[in-house]
């Protein structure tokens, strides 16, 4: 089952006609692959899917959930967290409040990683944590903060690298126990964030493509990692504009390891390692 450009156009315009979702500026290679996967997983052809979407709004919502990619990890890419710890977060050390937005937070591991880091830097109490995703299923998981232990086992290593060790000073070692932030139950195969962690963030459904800032607040830091790779160049620029206008001056923008601002918005930010700072 090979999806043609025409099929893809038909799919995009069908979704657009029955909902507010606009996939027309998604990266076409990824979108084709995702659509193909949805069809294969449900053993249906494109016409059947489109007919079902036309008749039932819930099918549109489910299709949107199914085509989004939800890869995330605790402390994914430790070098980024080292940068946050040593060069980005210290800039806000004396702020009365620190507003942070995780745009495209998926199942929330990054949100909780950030909270752990903030707490270790004595900044968590002053932080307001906002997190959003287009996919309501992953948001539910994020709100509960309960994960499969064995899927997250490998990433405890990252916790050690970011929280326990200091890359700038190898003699320093903070033996922070995991239980300070989450409980591990090997029998039940769960890793559950503590109640004080789960209670704090504000999670909201949000579509970066069609909605602006829904949090009625500007931000000191925006993290949006491995989200814009699914958008084409034009749409990426639109998202950079949204981020730029909702960051405070000198606010930080953290993208994925292989994402960058290539277009006209590049000169509105300064580079800070892998990250960007609004000029």
């Amino acid at each position: 089952m090979q999806i043609t450009d025409l099929d893809l156009q038909y799919f995009i315009s069908s979704i657009k006609s029955v909902s507010k979702y606009d996939l027309s500026n998604y990266s076409d290679k990824s979108l084709k692959r995702r659509l193909q996967k949805v069809l294969e997983d449900n053993s249906i052809n494109l016409m059947t899917l489109i007919n079902r979407m036309m008749g039932d709004r819930a099918v549109v919502e489910k299709t949107i959930r199914d085509i989004t990619v939800n890869t995330t990890e605790l402390f994914r890419d430790p070098t980024v967290w080292h940068l946050l710890r040593s060069r980005i977060l210290p800039r806000f050390k004396n702020n009365k409040t620190i507003n942070i937005w995780h745009a495209g937070c998926s199942t929330g591991q990054e949100v909780y990683s950030m909270m752990i880091l903030l707490n270790e830097m004595d900044m968590l109490e002053r932080a307001k944590i906002f997190a959003s995703d287009i996919n309501t299923d992953v948001l539910e998981t994020a709100k509960h903060g309960v994960y499969k232990y064995r899927f997250n086992l490998n990433y405890l290593d990252n916790f050690d690298k970011v929280i326990k060790q200091n890359p700038l000073n190898f003699e320093e070692y903070n033996d922070v126990p995991y239980e300070k932030y989450f409980d591990i139950d090997k029998q039940r195969d769960t890793l559950s964030m503590k109640q004080f962690m789960v209670d704090k963030p504000i999670f909201r459904k949000h579509d970066l493509v069609t909605e602006g800032n829904i949090f009625y607040s500007k931000f000191d830091i925006i993290l949006c990692r491995n989200v814009i790779i699914y958008f084409n160049y034009a749409l990426q620029n639109k998202v950079f504009e949204l981020f730029h206008s909702n960051l405070y001056p000198k606010g930080g923008l953290v993208l994925g390891m292989h994402e960058s601002i290539l277009g006209p918005w590049a000169n509105k930010f300064e580079r800070l390692g892998h990250a960007y700072v609004k000029k």
């Binding site: 990266s27 290679k29 990824s30 692959r33 990619v69 890869t71 790779i229 390891m257 292989h258």
Partner: peptide
């Protein structure tokens, strides 16, 4: 291809990356 990303070629002779399964 960077570690932990799929690497695609897109129209306009551009690289596109993905973290799909």
């Amino acid at each position: 291809a960077p570690a932990n990303y799929h690497m695609y070629v897109e129209l306009g002779n551009k690289i596109a990356l993905s973290t799909e399964e």
